[in-house]
Design a protein around this nucleic acid. Sequence first.
DNA 1: CGTATCAACTCCTCAGACAAGCTGACAACC
DNA 2: GGTTGTCAGCTTGTCTGAGGAGTTGATACG
Lengths: 222, 222
Amino acid sequence: MIRRHPLAEQAAEELLRRIGSGEWEVGAKLPGETTLAAQLGVGRSTIREAVRELAGRRVLESRQGAGVFVLALEASEDWDKVLRKADITDVLEGRLAIETEGARLAAARRTPDDLKNFRYTLADRRRAAVSAPDDWYIEADMAFHRAVVTAAHNAVLTELFDTFVPRIRRAMVDMLKMDEEHRHRNDQAAHAAIAEAIRVKDADLAASLAREHLSAVRNSIS
Amino acid sequence: MIRRHPLAEQAAEELLRRIGSGEWEVGAKLPGETTLAAQLGVGRSTIREAVRELAGRRVLESRQGAGVFVLALEASEDWDKVLRKADITDVLEGRLAIETEGARLAAARRTPDDLKNFRYTLADRRRAAVSAPDDWYIEADMAFHRAVVTAAHNAVLTELFDTFVPRIRRAMVDMLKMDEEHRHRNDQAAHAAIAEAIRVKDADLAASLAREHLSAVRNSIS
DNA sequence: CGTATCAACTCCTCAGACAAGCTGACAACC
DNA sequence: GGTTGTCAGCTTGTCTGAGGAGTTGATACG
């Protein structure tokens, strides 16, 4: 089944191509709507919709009375898309980088609230590991790992983790299907050990435990 | 009433708000253009531009003859924006996470081409450290660090690093202005040590050297 | 030289018309 | 009964013409 793209989308792609090819610098002004419409052989409203689409992607900006200006030479990478296309091992190694550093910082910065959060999410995870459906268990597992990263009190690391979550979730679904002996469900102790290392503020131990656990997860997939 | 934003943008914001509030599920079909136009009290072409903008942000998708459908409940986080708003220390800690893990993996996976890349970028950096203007020096420094991450042969880590680059570049400009004694320019040895650790495949050493260097950079700012 | 005015240009919004595509209902057929 | 064909009524897609509103730079004036 072929899907023909609307003219407006084609026009947006064409503009993006021209911008990327260096026809206009960043900050440069594009020709007027009527001129562009004539150049591409489409109506004015079509050009307007193409510009709107690129404005939504932060490539163009239109200012009434002044013109349409270039904000960036290409669409900023859509991270959801990058993660969807990437090898799952690459994604898990990225997660490993975020989470080991998160565990290390958490050991230095965790608050009493963070520790309480560990207790709750660990208990949830223990219950879910026994007999809950896969998706419940995955949510409980992710909630604990997120608690670790949150305890680092670093907005960038937290955002990074949240960006990775959907992709990791899907990978875990596949992983659990192949994991007949429920090895993953049985490593509750490894999770508790990470939380304990953070509690006693042993940064190196917390980091290496996190690394160990996540390396095991990565190796179980590839 | 002062309208700072065009109607089409306001309409897009309103739709985004409604979607985020749960008025429509993912995959649900929005009311027709004419209905929406009447609801928001604007013309049909205005609604079309609003929809087009949200389509550019991967929130909506319109199919001719069928309708407009919800792809996601909110705009995917724009990472450039997140990094611009974030504390610079948070950003540098994110970079530290990426780069220490990158150095560790590089020690295991570096190819002869990677080593050649280290030699070139290190030599550039040494020359630039002596007397080049700040922006030249910064480019040379970033080129070496990027070479390290590239040697990890992990697409996700490389993309992450590239996302961070613009924000880090700006921070370095400020840092160098305050760095009267050119301490940063004088740590060529630290960079060479990282490259050497990767060359001899000492993963732990490479990681800890990278951590040490980047911690120093972070501390010099805060 | 500094300022005010203004004309030409730009994007913004609306309305109307028709084309193109999808969907579900219904009739015809096997 | 189950399948297929047809079609009316919906949807989005595109174009055009008109007028509104904001910006910019040239020009005239004090």
